[in-house]
Amino acid sequence: MNKRQQWAGWGPHEQAEQHYLIEPRHLAGGGDLRHVTKYLRASGWSDRSKSGGPLAFDSPDRTIRVGYDPFIQPGGWMIRAEAANGQPAWHVTLGRQTPVEIVAGFTDALTQPRTAHAPNAWAPLQQNGWQTKQGHHPTATSPDSSSWMQFHQTAPDEAFWWAGARTEHGMTWQAHFAPTTPIHLVQAFSAALADPQPVMRPRGNVPPSNRIRSTSVSVLPSQLSAWQQTRINAARAATWARNTWATNRPRNHTASPYAAAGSTRARR
């Protein structure tokens, strides 16, 4: 088979595939796990997954693990960080139907340097029209009332963040953040949760709900690949920049480039 025949159906002759843009994104269903895992791999994280088993990725310093296990109940994502440098251990669980774009809001932040700005987990929600209600358990609710984020306090020293979404069929997914979870990571999650941009799902992967607004679009396989590659390239470029800085920085600076994972460093 010559090269022209081998690649027939691609390039200018490739066939468009039907996809759907889903709004609101928190009701779009789980999506393709590679949206999360490929970014972690491109950011220098080690794939510790077992063939046919749960997914597991470790940070370069092996103090944070991102896992996904669909074989247990309720199953889903588990992120754990070890205690280090004065930052206590923490963990986060996200249900299996949490959209990968929202999960990535959190996991992408694990790979990035922490900004100098004081974090505020409520700000992205309020900026995108979520209604906030004060009280014993302050809560923000999405404009369509199908998703929420809450600071749940059971005692003076016992509080945690809780988020989720529901349709007319019941609970779709939930996310729980241990009390010690660094607040800038919670903010990264809330920003992805409140993002008004729709997310894309292939035909046959649109959850059944009358609360979902879907727009049919035709997408070329090469377009999908290019969009995915752009995200991966961004992760690789950021990792290269961090590693270059770490190699050339003054010797009296000893902080890890993965300091973003804690309040000075976040750990499993």
Score class of each variant (00 low, 15 high):
L185N: 12
A191R: 07
W173C: 09
G170K: 02
R267K: 06
Q197Y: 05
A155W: 00
A83Q: 05
R203C: 01
A259T: 13
Q127C: 08
Y258D: 04
A42M: 10
A175I: 10
H13M: 12
R4F: 05
S263A: 04
S190D: 02
A81F: 02
V219L: 15
W245R: 06
A266N: 05
S225I: 15
P113C: 00
A191T: 15
P12M: 11
V66C: 04
Y258V: 04
Q229W: 08
W173F: 14
S214N: 03
T181A: 10
N85Y: 12
G170R: 01
P60A: 09
N210P: 03
E14F: 13
P24Y: 11
D157V: 02
V186H: 07
L125D: 00
G170T: 13
E82I: 06
D108P: 00
R166Q: 14
P196A: 05
H91C: 07
E17N: 07
E168H: 11
V217F: 02
G164H: 07
G30I: 07
R96H: 12
P207V: 13
A116P: 00
M171C: 07
W161A: 05
T132A: 11
L55G: 00
W161E: 09
A118V: 11
S59I: 06
S46P: 00
M78S: 05
A226T: 15
I64A: 10
R80M: 01
T63M: 06
I102P: 01
Q127D: 13
N233R: 13
A259K: 03
R62I: 02
A56V: 05
R65V: 15
Q197H: 12
L224G: 15
E17A: 02
G53D: 09
A121W: 15
S59D: 09
Q228Y: 06
P74Q: 03
I72Q: 00
A83N: 00
W90L: 01
G76T: 03
Q131A: 14
P124F: 14
L27T: 08
T239K: 15
T167C: 10
P250N: 07
G52P: 00
R4H: 09
T215C: 04
R25Q: 12
H137M: 03
Y68D: 09
H137K: 05
T254N: 06
S145V: 04
A165G: 08
R242Y: 02
L110P: 01
W240L: 03
W77C: 04
E14K: 07
R41D: 01
S43T: 06
L193W: 10
Q223R: 09
I22Y: 03
S256C: 09
R267H: 04
S190N: 05
M171E: 10
R251T: 06
P99M: 13
G262P: 03
V219W: 06
N85Q: 13
A165D: 14
A28I: 07
V219C: 03
P113I: 08
P198R: 11
G105T: 06
T93P: 01
V199F: 06
P156V: 12
